[in-house]
Design a protein around this nucleic acid. Structure first.
Lengths: 338, 338
DNA sequence: TTTATTTACGTAAACGTTTGCAGCAAATCG
DNA sequence: CGATTTGCTGCAAACGTTTACGTAAATAAA
């Protein structure tokens, strides 16, 4: 089967390649009559322009990259959903890369992206990432970057986040008002900025309500879920006075449920739990889990919009374009008052 | 900043572009000495080959496409995870497209992919798709395609699925053995082949255990979740004799939980439920949900492997390469016997 | 020594598209 | 009526890479 490209169309129409190209791009330099002829044949032959030739020539790929830690996670899945929606509307394609929260993988991926494959990048950094040279170096190639959720403070660009400090404060206050006196905070990898904000909200809420801030009650989770089960079990056994748990990460809330079941701690009678989560089934858990839920879809969509706007206008992205969206606290039985 | 490409490297090294290119591709036509020099400079300049120029020239993009209905769904999220893993290992990139189970979108996406942007396609068809001309037409361009989970029988290629018939049979039998006499089957869009297989397994299991097959007990769900709640409520009210539910789709199982809660039906005392699901938190639901769980990650990975093997060897994919993986039945309290 | 073979590199033509420039007719203006 | 503009089209050069082919020198074979 002879390939269908500008050349073959031009030959069949007995005009030059240039005219065919212009006609298809709806250039004003082409008469309506020839445009119609060209379009008709292009449609008949199911012509699709070669994306790579076009990208090479125009130095524009109509593709954005998304680098995230994982996809099997409601938050990121919803975010991708929003990103894909915004990209599709703008006629962009979406390349996806998973770091699995591994610094080395993140570096390799970012380096690879310098090949000019994408016009812009959306990123949520790996929890293990402490050095940002790879990202800065990518930005130096004039590639627009927008961070979402797990942002990187050292890189000057727009960030789309949620009100993590306030959410941490609210969650803690919610537990206090439900009657908790000893509230633990479970978070992951405190070098992530969001973890720090939530932790600060937690601390300030404790202080505001006259509760002591006990470092022993702050647990830094790890990547491995089995290990987290052990850590949480140790914590609950070492400190039987804990009567409230604020989990900054969905996984840790789930793990806490498992440990409580194992140890025979009743939720919410013995211990109350609230966690960051985008679980659809939170209300069906036993007991229904109180959550702080981030607007994940909107985060993805807004981040993509900012990025695409910059890409289209070829303007640099300024930190001033950052957006902070509000999370929502859903009160359910896991924090029911006495 | 002057661009770093083969030309600039060649100039600096005072050799031809061809030699630089060959050196970087480790061609045997280049001496080790010059290879070393080239590699050193390339590394120093952080050279990354232009992906589009390379793709254009070699007619190979090192990119595969993934077209799925949605991503905010455990099954597909895990599948993507497997796909990305296999792709990364083989040095491939992953473009993602969501159809939202919309036929028109699927057609548009597939048509768009004819631009030569990808070397191969992984696909799980939209539930609304009944005509497969768009897919066949894409396959006619010699693009290798592998289906997974929601396959398309009309297109001759490899498919990666689970043992849906057996799973439907087992799930139904499991309910029978737990004491159910009137078992309903909730599925979505019966034109999907997987739905048909599961339905057949359901019917055969009923017959094998001497239970009548009542068409009134088979509910075809729709896209809209709110609407499904209404349908399920109607069914349970119209047929109070229903004492078992086999949900072919995770969402329908969740909706059933909500309806049961609303109607005051106790699970598992009044009604037992088992559903296809990849919910990590199934065991934490109230009550824990018995599930048939598909090996989603493996499905994605195996599908990607088949595809990539064909892409690399430039060989067509034969239906004979299809794989059927086994799902696992997890027995939990929602189907506890009397 | 002559001839064949190997090694290492350069030349230049592709891949399909976009676009500055030129050309050429018809239309408009001075 | 000549000069200029306007509308449409073609020519050809890019974009950065890969690779068939050519070639010169070095080595091996005769």
């Amino acid at each position: 089967m002879t390939p269908v490209n500008l050349k073959s169309l031009a030959e069949e129409l007995k005009m030059s390649i240039a005219t065919v190209s212009r006609a298809l791009r709806d250039s004003h330099e082409v008469s309506e009559a020839t445009k119609a002829r060209v379009r008709a044949l292009a449609a008949a032959r199911h012509y699709e322009p070669n994306a790579y030739a076009s990208s090479l020539r125009r130095n524009i790929s109509k593709t954005i990259g998304v680098v995230i830690p994982k996809v099997a996670n409601h938050f990121f899945a919803l975010a991708i959903n929003g990103i894909e929606e915004a990209a599709r509307q703008a006629g962009y394609h979406v390349l996806i890369y998973l770091t699995h929260d591994d610094y080395a993988r993140e570096v390799a991926i970012v380096q690879h992206l310098k090949g000019g494959r994408i016009d812009g990048l959306l990123m949520s950094v790996a929890s293990g990432t402490e050095d940002f040279a790879h990202i800065k170096s990518l930005q130096d190639t004039n590639l627009p970057i927008v961070f979402f959720d797990r942002v990187c403070a050292e890189v000057a660009t727009a960030k789309v986040t949620t009100n993590d400090y306030e959410s941490g404060y609210q969650a803690t206050e919610h537990l206090v008002q439900a009657g908790c006196q000893r509230i633990a905070h479970l978070l992951i990898s405190n070098n992530l900025s969001i973890g720090q904000f939530r932790q600060q909200g937690y601390l300030d809420a404790l202080r505001a309500h006259g509760l002591p801030a006990d470092p022993d009650l702050v647990l830094n989770g790890v990547m491995d879920n089995e290990q987290n089960l052990v850590l949480i079990r140790e914590l609950l056994q070492r400190r039987p006075d804990i009567d409230g748990i604020f989990a900054s990460v969905e996984r840790l809330a789930i793990s806490t449920y498992h440990v409580c079941r194992e140890l025979g701690r009743r939720i919410p009678e013995d211990i109350k739990i609230i966690g960051f989560s985008n679980l659809e089934s939170a209300s069906l858990l036993d007991p229904p889990l109180s959550t702080i839920t981030q607007p994940a879809y909107d985060i993805g969509r807004e981040a993509a919009k900012i990025l695409l706007r910059a890409v289209e206008k070829k303007k640099p992205i300024l930190p001033g374009q950052s957006i902070v969206l509000d999370s929502t606290l859903f009160e359910r039985r896991s924090t029911a008052g006495r």
